[in-house]
């Protein structure tokens, strides 16, 4: 049994969805309002997909489930993500 990882481990799964690497992007938790970079979130990899939780309040920020050539992405636990335009 292993404990959780952190949002650095999301870089691969999210690079298929977003342009560039979003793990250094800041996101606001829809549960407690804390703003943190995605890399600092807690990531639980043992579910059928990745479950991303707020490091401040444990609220589920996002889930990512890969099934063959499909990706099911929920970002409903984040109220805002600040992305940087590519140079």
């Amino acid at each position: 049994m292993s404990s959780h990882l952190d949002g650095n481990a999301l870089a691969g799964a999210l690079s298929d969805v977003f342009q560039g690497d979003v793990t250094a992007a800041s996101a606001r938790c829809a549960g407690c309002g804390a703003v943190s970079v995605l890399a600092e979130a807690m990531v639980y990899p043992d579910a059928p997909g990745l479950v991303v939780r707020c490091a401040s309040c444990d609220h589920v920020l996002a889930t990512i489930v890969e099934a063959g050539d499909r990706v099911f992405l929920s970002l409903s636990g984040m109220s805002t993500i600040e992305l940087r335009r590519r140079p």
Partner: peptide
């Protein structure tokens, strides 16, 4: 292999 990955650390 899939990468390079990670813009934060």
């Amino acid at each position: 292999v899939h990468g390079p990955l990670g813009a934060f650390f």
